[in-house]
Design a binder for these strands. Structure first.
Lengths: 150, 150, 150, 150
DNA sequence: TTTT
DNA sequence: TTTT
């Protein structure tokens, strides 16, 4: 291919504290959902309308995963750059499903905190430490990382 | 929300000629899939690896839908800007499914042709006129447009 | 040219209240400077270093000029998209000079307020109404707008 | 600063072969000018108008400097991401001047070739090897690199 | 599930 | 001239 670009730029707010996991190889993986909101005037009704879009974000970049684990909490506003990736998985009924995620791959992507908070480590509304779980055994895992659930 | 951004920037090649449809309101809607390719060196094996990502693109912007219908053909390289939108639909088994698309909404988005071709309308590898179908009847349609299939 | 893109994306803080002017054609033009900050670890000294970059922003887009006039004030944090434009001017000594600006042209660009303030119109640190001046007579004006000074 | 973003995205064509220099520290620095073209309908005259914008690009990122040296030639179309940087210099008359550049800093930025050419090293319209000069002695240089001229 |  |  003669060169391609796959870039997503989001500014939004986290719906929950990020989830922190380890890959089988021992790398930290941080995931969360990010809300963006689009507002427009409906031309038919003339009403002001709003639509919230939820984005699944997964961070493989070590440095940014550390930043995310330490400073991101539910409600925080963040700027990020990643790329679109759709992965296939099989649901409990054996059906193929697809999920599209915004991925900050190793050595790639950007993450910038936009709202200044007193101290992301300690406090207040944003203070609950994000849950950390061991990676589940990866039976039949074909993706770049063990099953990520939101 | 204190301001949000939902932006996708892609440079890639069309997998097929675009599909042109009409909304119930009579607006032209153009959709296609776009391939981007990511290459990297696998750190474990040291091998050069490549992954092609397929993006579903839907254009509601009238002006850009016209450009897309006239000039985009299978294989053409294009730069575009849109926003991420995930819509819910129900499959034939009654199961809820989600599809994420890159949407160029009314009065929004960008579309730029990157490879110069003699004439998108007439010729060669890119010449087949894109299929145009009437919009299907919209039973139970809740999304912003009648079911879009790729 | 086979398609080109000229896009700037900035998130930063206004150095001063915006300046509002009118073009000869009666269109509102809003301009301001925006600070972005880059921090990095100096590899030689190991020290943490910071560099502030100042960007000249000019808004010709009517809708966004209105938003900027009403809500932007010194210190506010904003996300914007524009394009790079370098214009030539002649200094008092008759020397040719060049100034590069981030331009939000008519019907183009984006502007999103990122920090929520109680009320941009009334208050506090951000409250001073931006200065509004009549456009100066445009003798010898060759650019897209009468001389813009920061 | 509560997080900032300084990003430029360009798709354009090189005006000349790139110039390759070495910093005092022995790092390769590649610079060139890139043309983007904006076309619009003049609302007063109704005429189609076009404006070409020239951007000064400087690459400090080692990996991308290598790619640029090897593959970029006059006329080639490229996608790149960098950040805006304005540096001050003194002209021969002792006057302070400012030049704004699109900088791909160390470990940052993106560069993607968009038009496929048989072989950037050998051939045809794009074939002239880029000039390589030793860095000039850096008397009084205060910027991040010895004087860059286009 | 966020935010205004 | 901003911001942390």
């Amino acid at each position: 291919m003669a060169g391609s670009v796959n870039k997503v730029i989001l500014v939004g707010n986290l719906g929950k504290d990020p989830e922190v996991r380890m890959s089988q190889a021992g790398a930290k993986i941080v995931s969360f959902t990010l809300a963006t909101s689009d507002t427009w005037n409906d031309r038919a009704s003339g009403e002001r309308r709003e639509r919230t879009e939820w984005h699944r974000v997964v961070i493989f970049n070590d440095r940014l995963a550390d930043v995310a684990e330490r400073f991101l909490r539910k409600g925080r506003q963040v700027y990020l750059e990643g790329s679109l990736q759709t992965r296939k998985w099989t649901d409990q009924g054996g059906q193929e499903r697809y999920t599209t995620e915004v991925v900050l791959a190793a050595f790639r992507g950007e993450l910038t905190l936009l709202d200044s908070r007193p101290d992301g480590e300690t406090g207040g509304q944003y203070g609950a430490a994000p849950e950390r779980r061991q990676a589940a055994p990866a039976y039949g895992n074909t993706g770049p990382v063990d099953e990520i659930s939101f």
